[in-house]
Simulated assay, not measured.
Amino acid sequence: MGEVRPGPAHERLGVLVGEWVGEEEFAATPWAPAGTARSRHSLRSGVGGLAVVHDYEQARGGGDPFLGHGFFTVDPGTGEVVWFFLDSTGFPPDTPLRGDWDGEGVLRLAKTTPRGQARHVFRFHGDAFEHEIDVRLGDAAAFSPFARGRFHRV
């Protein structure tokens, strides 16, 4: 198997790279109550340009921080953006989120797990981005808003 080299799809992920801070609002879930948080996304290029490595830290109400780590890359077979992500809830990343760019500056990703389904939308505007997460948990009939965040580059 030949070596995969970064291409235009990998380069497009470069919009993610940087240090980002912002505020998030969360709906209640079986894992946590509704609330707000101050969060940081630290994203850097890695694996010779084939991935964007992601570290996440969220501070809510004086408790222990909520942490996450993952990476974005491009599936060479499908061209889809994939995002593997593990967080401090402890559930392993059994499957990545998958999706693609929707126009200029909008990345849409989704995944299904035994706990439900999640849809993420990242909207980039220069040195700012919005991150929306909608979920459908258990046997719910429809998706509902879970998180809304606004971040700026520092």
Rank of each mutant, 00 (worst) to 15 (best):
P8T: 11
P8F: 02
A9F: 01
A9E: 13
A9T: 00
A9C: 03
A9G: 02
H10V: 02
H10C: 01
H10R: 04
E11Y: 09
E11L: 05
E11H: 13
R12Q: 11
R12W: 06
R12T: 05
L13Y: 00
L13Q: 03
G14L: 07
G14Q: 04
G14K: 09
V15R: 09
V15I: 15
V15W: 05
V15S: 04
V15E: 05
L16E: 08
L16S: 04
V17I: 12
V17R: 13
V17A: 11
V17F: 06
V17E: 05
V17D: 05
G18S: 07
G18V: 10
G18F: 11
G18K: 09
E19F: 12
E19R: 15
E19A: 12
E19L: 11
E19D: 15
E19M: 13
W20Y: 02
W20M: 00
W20V: 01
W20H: 00
V21L: 09
V21F: 09
V21I: 13
G22I: 11
E23I: 12
E23W: 09
E23T: 13
E23V: 15
E24V: 12
E24I: 10
E24C: 10
E25M: 12
E25W: 11
E25T: 14
A27C: 05
A28V: 12
T29D: 02
T29E: 00
P30R: 15
P30L: 13
W31D: 15
W31F: 13
P33C: 09
A34K: 02
A34D: 01
A34Y: 01
G35D: 01
T36L: 07
T36G: 09
T36D: 07
R38F: 08
R38N: 08
R38M: 06
S39G: 06
S39K: 14
R40F: 03
R40P: 01
R40D: 01
H41G: 00
H41D: 03
H41I: 06
S42E: 13
L43F: 03
L43R: 08
L43Q: 05
L43T: 04
R44F: 04
R44T: 11
R44G: 03
R44L: 12
R44H: 07
S45G: 15
S45Q: 11
G46W: 00
G46F: 03
G46K: 04
V47N: 08
G48E: 10
G48Q: 06
G49W: 07
G49L: 15
G49M: 10
G49N: 06
L50E: 09
L50W: 08
L50T: 13
A51T: 10
A51I: 04
A51D: 00
V52P: 04
V52D: 01
V53H: 01
V53I: 14
V53L: 14
V53N: 00
V53M: 06
H54D: 14
H54Y: 14
D55K: 05
D55A: 13
D55H: 11
Y56Q: 00
Y56L: 05
Y56N: 01
Y56P: 00
E57P: 02
E57Y: 11
E57N: 04
E57A: 08
Q58T: 08
Q58D: 12
Q58K: 11
Q58M: 13
R60V: 15
G61L: 06
G61C: 07
G61V: 08
G62A: 05
G63V: 04
G63Y: 00
